[in-house]
């Protein structure tokens, strides 16, 4: 079996790689969004902490 034949998937390439491609995309987007959410809340917590320090 060569790689061209493998990726052609006997004519079902679009359906199969479309499925696995979407799965990969979803997992990547989800991880990026969670990491972004963490960065955002940590930034906010820093700001809150600095504001408290300024008051004292």
């Amino acid at each position: 079996m060569n790689w061209g034949e493998f990726f052609a998937m006997n004519g079902y390439a679009w359906y199969i790689w479309g499925s696995y491609g979407m799965a990969l995309l979803i997992f990547i987007i989800e991880i990026v969004m969670v990491r972004h959410r963490r960065a955002l809340i940590l930034q906010q917590l820093h700001l809150m902490r600095n504001a408290e320090d300024d008051m004292t």
Partner: peptide, 25 residues
Amino acid sequence: LLRVRCIILERECKAQWVSELAEVK
């Protein structure tokens, strides 16, 4: 678990233990 850690920080943001976390300090 990653997401629940974000949610905990968001909802407990005024708690003492959060302000003492290494990643916040």
